[in-house]
Amino acid sequence: MSGFDKVVQDYAQAMAGLTDNMTVIAGGFGLCGIPEGLIAQIQKMGTRGLTVVSNNAGVDGFGLGLLLEKHQIRKMIASYVGENALFEQQLLSGELEVELTPQGTLAEKMRAGGAGIPAFFTATGYGTPVGEGKEVREFNGRPYILEESIRGDFAIVKGWKADRYGNVVYRHTAQNFNPLAATAGKITVVEVEEIVEPGELEPSQIHTPGIYVDRVILGQFEKRIEKRTLSQA
């Protein structure tokens, strides 16, 4: 079964083939469940002109903020980008383009992209700036807008455990956009905390089946907390 062994040994192999002006879909919500090592590798490679699709854009000095530091992102497709001063600067200077997309629409764009559905109708955004210029159709008396799906040249994903065949499970709310991103990349790379042998993961508990995954790499994670909130007790 060696043809199914997706494990690569280093980050250069993990991101091989990424070139300027490509579209990269990244999993993660805030700093939770982000592929830290893969982002660092893109920074190291210096690839420029990227379109990055991700719910958020990291913070200054961490996550996707690393790619902003090196001016590698041309366009960001995201639902909320408020945690990043560098982002703000580059947006105001016109260097960076941003396409703000409602969070559910963003998730569905990835899901549909991965499932071979080119577009879908949704009520979200109708009558708002998001709906401007988009086709409107009524179903059962309610207006919906047409949203196109998204595919990436690369998808970069953070998993908890994967087996060698690329079956992945996620941990807690670090799941978020990761399974959706995983389906929507022409090349999907998953960075995980632990690699196990085929058969060790319970088949019915797998979140991302290996068919979606091209490369698996064992990573080391800082797992920085964005807002550490504790109960008083």
């Binding site: 995201a78 639902s79 909320y80 980008v81 408020g82 703000e88 947006l91 105001l92 703000l100 409602p102 969070q103 559910g104 629409t105 949704t122 009520a123 979200t124 955004g125 109708y126 708002t128 998001v130």
Partner: peptide, 15 residues
Amino acid sequence: KLVKGMGGAMDLVAG
């Protein structure tokens, strides 16, 4: 003012 994004708010009000 700087627009930070709608997050999930548009989905919540539409759904």
